[in-house]
Amino acid sequence: MSKGRSMAPVVKRKKLAEVEWKVIEDFCKGCGFCIEFCPVDALEESEKLNAKGVHPPKLKSEDACIGCGLCERICPDFAVHLETKESGGERE
């Protein structure tokens, strides 16, 4: 079936949950898993160096994260997690 085109060829990705992306910078050992495997490419290395001398990840932009939680799971160091927003609803 051919795709119609009047719609721009975009993919919309909605936030899965009202969550805030958090990093415990000093826990990060710099493996880069979260950046590599983020499905929406929301993360990048930050400029700063942490206590272990690596660049912990940061969000590319405020609303880049859709809250899928893969980074939280794949981080071997418990450095990255999602936090339920105070105002928002339940996580998951």
Binding site: D26, C31, F33, R73, I74, C75, P76, D77, F78
Partner: peptide
């Protein structure tokens, strides 16, 4: 007891996490 003793990118951390 954290951060744990495992190296950067070691799968053991992921096993613990999962």
């Amino acid at each position: 007891r954290f951060p744990h003793i495992w190296c950067e990118g070691c799968g053991d951390g992921i096993i613990l996490n999962c």
